[in-house]
Design a protein around this nucleic acid. Sequence first.
DNA 1: GCGACAG
DNA 2: ATCTTGTCGC
Length: 232
Amino acid sequence: MKSLKLHRWNISVKEALDIQNKLSKCVIQQKLDKPVKVLAGCDVAFEKNSYLACAGIVLMSFPELDLIDEKVIFSTIKFPYIQGFLSFRETPALLEIFKTIKAKIDLIFVDGYGIAHPRKFGIASHLGLILDLPTIGCGKTYLIGEYDEPKVDAGDYSWLFYKDEIVGAVVRTKTKVKPIFVSVGHKICLNDAIEFTLKCCKGYRIPEPIRMAHIIVNRNLKEKKLKSVAGK
DNA sequence: GCGACAG
DNA sequence: ATCTTGTCGC
């Protein structure tokens, strides 16, 4: 699939900051304009003291959530992990895979935040803008903002505020289990993001597309380690 | 200066 | 993210 080359990746943190401030203005919040048939979930796993990483993408049908396809790729990560700059570390590897996928994707689930970000440009927004596709950011731990603890039942949620603005929602995807942080990535509105997130949770805290992607990248990275120990 | 801080 | 086993609770 096509992807826009909005900037280089071999850059400094300052340049990355400028890019975020500039591109955040291009993010679009809107109701999904097309029916969703194909979902994608992506994730990246890293080897401990190394630059080796395994990026993976899973495609699923909606609303059935049947697995359509899965793909992983090993890559060398150069950008360090710095709070607020996660996308510059993980996006290049993910793009390598998206570029090889020919199927038409309607919506992408990203592990991390969208516009609920210090500069309104988390990895979900960044990836969505580059691929020009709707994306939802699903964070597992707190990053920014203020919120009230949502009620205990699956489906309950509360708004996430940042600078007097609603930037996301704290969603209880499973009864009596810690909620996740949902925010708009690109080309979707918060209500749709919450709705799709809930419809994609099948008994687990994490939406299936992301949960599956997480499983395959970890499995592949583990297998790669075993092979390197066994011989070559 | 101190605390907070996606994966 | 990654390092790691068993264990308490629904």
